[in-house]
Design a protein around this nucleic acid. Structure first.
Lengths: 118, 118
DNA sequence: CTGAATCCAAAAGGATACTG
DNA sequence: CAGTATCCTTTTGGATTCAG
């Protein structure tokens, strides 16, 4: 979802489908596994685990196991992870401002360009 | 590569693997099909066509067929497409500043966390 | 030159069930 | 609660070939 679009380098894509939302969910402080599951809306534990592991590997989040009978694990942004908040905000601002226009264009194109796809 | 990460909306991903680089290639003005092929480094015509068609459908680029014996087609950013340059620059700045740190973290994690994956 | 057609491999994401 | 283990579907991107 987040492309490292340096002109001279091969294209690198950072993160998967859920990375952006996870970063925003962690913006306000550490969250538990289940506290991430719910607001993400329908992500499966397998995918959430994979994504969080990848982000941990990349130094974007920390994973803290806090024992106890109902096990508890906290995820939090690292300093590096917080540096993503800036560009992420730029993307969100763009979405709020221009995504409707993009979707309008998409609808319009489907109406004019291909009236009967049957 | 470009996630519309509004908190309340379902996640929408804008563009594919090459969208970011295409936008940057078009930043300086219209480009022809073959002028996009080369700097993108190894994209196949099929994928480039698909990506450009999607961007045209979304109102991000215009496609202008200029006849002639060697056929010529120009692609250019629309006003909407140019609004992407801002957030895109933020992403590129982030990449330049923090991508090395991310890759370092990735290497370090692979060394410490899993010494013998055989 | 531009791009459509076909076929294909890999990866991402998801459903479901089970474990410490 | 916080995952792990399997299996599966869909999507994406690519190689190759052919056409206007």
């Amino acid at each position: 979802m987040f492309a490292a679009c340096l002109p001279g380098t091969p294209l690198i894509q950072i993160g998967g489908k859920w990375t952006a939302k996870i970063v925003r969910c962690l913006e306000g402080g550490p969250r538990r596994f289940s506290e991430l599951m719910v607001p993400l809306g329908g992500v499966t534990p397998k995918v959430l685990t994979e994504t969080l592991r990848a982000m941990e590997r990349d130094g974007l989040v920390t994973r803290t196991v806090r024992g106890g009978v109902p096990q508890r694990v906290d995820y939090a942004l690292t300093a590096l992870g917080r540096t993503l908040l800036g560009p992420m905000a730029a993307c969100c601002d763009w979405s709020e401002a221009h995504l409707p226009a993009l979707l309008d264009a998409r609808d319009a194109h489907e109406s004019t360009g291909r009236p009967a796809p049957s």
